[in-house]
Amino acid sequence: MDGWSNERAAEMFPMVFEGFVVVLQVTAVSGVIAILLGLLVAISDQTAPFWLRRPVNWIMQFVRNTPLLVQVLFVWYATSLYINPEWTAFVVGSAVLGIHYASYTSESYRAGIEAIPKGQWEAATALSLPRHRVWLAIILPQMLRRSTAAVANWLIAMFKEVPTLFAIGVLEMLAMVDRYAGLNYTGYVEGYTIAGLLFLAASYPVAVATRRLEIRLAKSNF
């Protein structure tokens, strides 16, 4: 082990950056799952029959209350053993991460729905609007306005948890650092520094933008 070396950092950078691109790809896939599945769960919580709502709620509770790392490892080994060993770590990891965060985004959506005054539902009833129309034209727009910022914050949190997928061999940044350092017996400090800076560079502007969005939504006419 020797000290920090600028040359080594420069040499490692392209590799770690490659891992960073993978992180972004995972984030994109998991993000879509977290956004859409969370929405589906929140809506079904209000509309689905009891026999469907109950188990979905149960599963979401379970997902929220167990560690992501355990879920990732469990699903990775379980799917390769019992379902399809061909599924890649990228696919399985992104799916688990997305579902995990859907359990959180669904709560933010749910809070957004519950914050809508009862009078909105009553006015919709008084006008006999069809149920799908009530959701599309009245509830969803008002709910999205209330929960967009919260969901964006979950996505930032999710982005920062992508390295968990290192555990099942997704070639994100930690894996890249590990690969380099394993061959060269050094470079951990430089590699993790680069990884940290790349995370910061990506998530800080997004966090600022989210904050701006929050302010803008609070001020808008609707």
């Binding site: 005054p117 909105q120 009553e122 006999s128 129309r133 034209a137 008002q142 609707f222």
Partner: peptide, 20 residues
């Protein structure tokens, strides 16, 4: 009142005419 805050005045009055 219970107007729909996400719709302009005109659409508040047309929404149910069209969809109901």
């Amino acid at each position: 009142f219970n107007l729909f805050p996400n719709m302009r005045v005109l659409r508040n009055v047309t929404e149910a005419q069209v969809h109901t």
